[in-house]
């Protein structure tokens, strides 16, 4: 049972409780950094690294942190990890750092990280919190990569900077802008909800609608 629930913690974040598409957290970096796959992947992995580390530390210190100061303590821990990630990126991946630049410090205020700290790491042990961090991080990275792929392909005609659509066909520039990001976000969210929703419920709903329509028709006939 314990193993099953641990597997659940790991897989929950990927589709069922995907932080972006189901919980609708971290929308700002999602829209801002998904103009290409590389940017999405970089942002996703750096957020995942901070999420996993902060989940582990917050879970480890949960018993010694007084309730009154828990939020400032979490923020200090999260800000510390973000600054470490920022310095490492600046030193070892300067190209990615300059592409993401402004959005890296904003990971501190990413709702996903503080949300998981408060909702999960605060109440579970270190291993479970680490698994939750990995699952949520994977879900976030996956969403950013999918959105980046769609926007890069349709907006610029390339995938991972390789030209896929001939240059003679101009890309839809709007997908490179925030408005295009919103559109793709909506489409991906709708697709995930459609495929992950319990279909029997959908059929029930359709059944009710049909009954309502039949009742309306009967009323009309009687009239």
């Amino acid at each position: 049972m314990a193993k099953e629930s641990r597997l659940k913690y790991l897989t929950n974040g990927i589709i069922k409780e995907n932080p972006n598409l189901v919980l609708v957290l971290g929308t700002c970096p999602t829209l801002a950094t998904t103009s290409s796959i590389i940017n999405g992947l970089g942002m996703g992995l750096s957020t995942a690294a901070v999420l996993i580390c902060s989940n582990i530390v917050i879970s480890a210190i949960r018993k010694i942190v007084p309730d009154k100061v828990r939020i400032p303590c979490y923020i200090v821990v999260i800000a510390g990890f973000v600054t470490v990630v920022q310095m490492i990126m600046q030193a070892y991946t300067p190209a990615l750092y300059s592409a993401l630049g402004l959005y890296i410090p904003l990971i501190v205020v990413n709702c996903i990280i503080l949300g998981r700290a408060e909702m999960f790491a605060n109440k579970h042990n270190v291993i479970d919190s680490a698994l939750d961090g990995i699952g949520m991080g994977l879900g976030f990275t996956l969403t950013l990569c999918i959105m980046g792929a769609i926007r890069e392909l349709i907006g610029s005609g390339t995938l991972l900077n390789f030209r896929v659509i001939p240059a003679s066909i101009p890309g839809m520039n709007i997908l490179n802008l925030a408005s295009g990001g919103f559109f793709v976000f909506g489409c991906v969210m709708a697709a995930v909800h459609y495929f992950s929703k319990d279909k029997s419920k959908i059929r029930d709903n359709v059944g009710e609608a049909d009954l309502f329509r039949e009742a309306q028709d009967l009323k009309k006939k009687e009239a």
Binding site: P66, V76, G80, T83, Q90, A91
Partner: peptide, 30 residues
């Protein structure tokens, strides 16, 4: 609450100082 918060701040600051000492020479070189 004060002791815990101060202790966490000190630990995080130390970790940042160590990372800075390692990363900064590479950042300057880059």
């Amino acid at each position: 609450p004060v002791v815990v918060l101060v202790a966490i701040c000190l630990i995080v600051s130390t970790a940042l100082a160590v990372t800075y000492a390692k990363a900064n020479p590479i950042i300057v070189k880059n």
